[in-house]
Nucleic acid binder design. Structure first.
Length: 665
RNA sequence: UGGCCUAUGGUGUAACUGGCAACACGUUGGUUUUUGGUACCAAAGAGUCUAGGUUCGAGCCCUAGUAGGCCAACCA
């Protein structure tokens, strides 16, 4: 078997390098460290996928560690929800751990720091400390308590721990460097007083360690080899390493923090705080609302772990900011459901069809294939009768032959049943179509272009269908400095429909996924009961017909084409020039004309700097020559610079350039 | 008066560590089809932010610039 080299992402490359440099594969260990202060969302799935994915790839353990150092925000409810979500995604953690497990060890180390003169108690207000800290562009200054004696520090810290002081009156800081260019190194806080009950340690502690102090040391205690987090923690790495330096035993694994770009999805927000606001403001009905990008929301919407994992895998891992198009997510769920979801028929927006030549009272039960993508899926029975529903959109009195659904005088196939022909329509006083009268033919071998889905009115079950649209109408709702993301909330993100579904769906269970043929994928919502079936639309089928129809809603995002036009002519010329020499002769002529046209809007001052373009950049020089010709024609005088440029071009070995230069001389 | 990170088709990620840019989504055609779905075929779309440099050769290395992001919570 030839070994295929699958490209490695930069984190895998780092690991491979470490392995090559002698690290044992057995020492590989990862962790996923959520703070239990909210629900996991699709963005977290990337972090989960990276660390757990590495665990699977290298057969290494992955800990689930709750970063619970702030009792004010964290709750058991979130711990449970997070565990459920990670497990649902199909990942298995090695140990379930909590940073709070390490509070004693952290405390002991802190004492050690104080004794070594590497930490001290500060007793100022947070405002005073913030002022001394400086700004990103200005260094900080030492505070008045920075040089307390070890004995004094030890005593105060002891009393902090014993609860003798109020919140905010003292803190423990690492003693590093108040002038450090990295603000995180300007004597960062290690402990603060918080007289709150902790979800796990109760009232044992009233001082709690800060993230920076806790995280690296927790990694070290657990012997995590690679500690992976998102980009905004990059500046923390220096501090992470500093803290580690103070305690690390050379014979043990020293964890490495590495950072990747977090996932952003178009038309979506990822901030827990903002998601919470949607919940609190009643924009959505809870964290698991199917419109939410939370894992629980996606689950309820009908997304599968498979699809989400595939998505995260496809998205890749790198270090630059990104916005992933939701269409990729939709592709992943369609791809998965196409293979697995049983097909059924449902009519969401019904219009009545009467089959005039079908006997009154007769019914037939046809075999219908459950899933042509899956041979083992089998068949079910669907009932047929004289009166049916089809979709309103599937009928037009008159239409061009591009419309191959039902029209007067035309024939279509009813999926799994007969071919019918529309003969007549009955309308109410206002001209709305009340029923379509058709005749059927038992010859089903005939070739007809359209196939429609339908339900027998007599047998159909009423069901509620919830159709969702994106929650925001802006591609990046929280990226506008001047506008609040709430301004972009889509008021029509939920549409509730009374639909008719085939009777086989009567026994459908909560969570089950179906393809409503020709419409999309739907799953049974939690709100569903034996009296009232409720479906969520997970995602529609690809609909190439909809694209052909003239667009009715002109809310199309404006094309960024004007920004293209606004690009300065000289820049465009430069760009065109670059590829000039690689083009076919025919295309060269086109580009040449384009450059000549653009050159009319170029000033000499813009062009002049390009005269000394590097010799090897022939294409650019040709473009300059072409533009120069236009300028000269329009009265630009030939000065020394111009002549130098021309002469140099004449001496070039590239024929095209020489040709254009000759035209100038 | 700063530090750090990033820059490749519309989007995302690659490019065997320097050898004339690939894959997926999306887009556009077409074939098949009892889903205008799926599957399959094909096409268009970037010459790698700019300018210099090193090199026989640069998307990969160096220098300078530009643009974007992150850093001033007793949050994580």
């Amino acid at each position: 078997m030839s070994e295929e080299r699958k490209p490695l992402n930069f984190i895998e490359q780092i690991i491979e390098e470490d392995l090559a440099n002698g690290m044992s594969k057995n020492n590989l260990r990862f962790r996923f460290p959520p703070e239990p202060n909210g629900y996991l969302h699709i963005g977290h799935t990337k972090a989960i996928g990276i660390s757990f994915g590495l665990g699977e790839k290298y057969n290494a353990p992955v800990n689930l560690r709750f970063d619970d150092t702030n009792p004010a925000k964290e709750e058991q409810e979130y711990v449970d929800a997070i565990k459920e979500d990670v497990a649902w995604l199909g990942y298995k953690w090695d140990k379930e751990l909590f940073s709070s497990d390490y509070f004693q060890q952290l405390y002991d180390w802190a004492i050690h720091f104080i004794k070594e003169g590497k930490a001290y108690i500060d007793s100022q207000s947070s405002e005073a400390m913030a002022e001394q800290k400086g700004t990103p562009t200005q260094p900080g200054v030492d505070g008045p308590y920075r040089n307390r004696t070890v004995a004094e520090n030890l005593e105060l810290f002891e009393r902090m721990k014993n609860g003798e002081f109020d919140e905010g009156s003292h803190i423990l800081r690492a003693k590093i460097d108040m002038q450090h260019p990295n603000m995180l190194m300007r004597d960062p806080i290690m402990y603060r007083i918080l007289k709150k009950e902790h979800h796990r340690t109760g009232n044992t502690w009233c001082i709690y360690p800060m993230y920076d102090w806790t995280h690296g040391e927790s990694d070290y205690i657990e012997q995590i080899s690679h500690s992976l987090c998102s980009l905004e923690f990059k500046p923390h790495r220096e501090l992470y390493d500093w803290f580690l330096d103070q305690v690390v035993d050379q014979s043990l694994i020293r964890p490495k923090q590495r950072e990747f770009a977090r996932l952003n999805l178009s038309y979506t927000i990822m901030s827990k705080r903002k998601l919470l606001q949607l919940v609190n403001d009643g924009i959505v009905n809870g964290w698991d609302d199917p419109r939410m990008p939370t894992i629980s929301g996606l689950r309820r919407r009908g997304y599968t772990p498979n699809a989400i994992r595939k998505f995260v895998e496809t998205v890749g891992v790198a270090k630059r900011d990104n916005i992933i198009d939701v269409s990729l997510l939709e592709f992943c769920i369609r791809e998965d459901l196409n293979k697995t979801a049983p097909r059924v028929m449902a009519v969401l927006d019904p219009v009545k069809v009467i089959i005039t030549n079908y006997p009154e009272g007769k019914e037939e039960w046809f075999d219908a294939e459950n899933n042509q993508e899956d041979e083992t899926a089998g068949f079910r029975k669907v009932p047929f009768s004289k009166e049916l529903y089809i979709e309103k959109d599937d009928f037009k009195e008159e239409a061009s032959n591009k419309f191959f659904r039902l029209k007067l005088g035309g024939e279509v196939r009813l999926k799994n049943a007969y071919i019918i022909k529309a003969e007549n329509v009955v309308k109410d006083n206002e001209g709305n179509i009340k029923e379509i009268q058709c005749t059927y033919s038992e010859d089903t071998s005939k070739k007809v272009k359209g196939t429609l889905h339908w339900v027998s009115i007599k047998h159909a079950i009423k069901a509620e269908v919830r159709e969702y649209d994106r929650l925001f109408i802006d591609e990046a709702p929280d990226s506008h400095q001047d506008k609040d993301f709430m301004e972009f909330v889509n008021p029509n993100s939920l549409k509730t429909i009374k639909a008719f579904v085939e009777p086989s769906l009567k026994e459908a269970k909560i969570g089950e996924c179906f393809q409503f043929q020709r419409l999309g994928y739907f799953n049974v919502d939690n709100d569903s009961s034996s009296e009232q079936l409720v479906f969520n639309k997970t995602v529609g089928l690809r609909d190439t017909w909809a694209k052909q129809k003239p667009k009715q809603n002109n809310n199309q995002p404006q094309k960024p084409s004007n920004s293209q036009q606004q690009r300065k002519a000289i820049d465009v010329i430069q760009k065109l020039g670059k590829k000039y020499t690689n083009l076919s002769e025919e295309k060269q002529l086109k580009v040449k004309a384009e450059i000549q046209e653009l050159a009319k809007n170029v000033s000499y001052d813009e062009l002049q700097p390009l005269f000394n373009t590097a010799v090897k950049k022939v294409g650019t020089r040709i473009a300059v020559a072409l533009a120069l010709a236009v300028l000269l024609q329009n009265g630009q005088e030939r000065n020394g610079d111009v002549n130098d440029f021309i002469n140099k071009a004449l001496e070039d070995k590239n024929e095209l350039l020489v040709f254009e230069a000759k035209a100038l001389s």
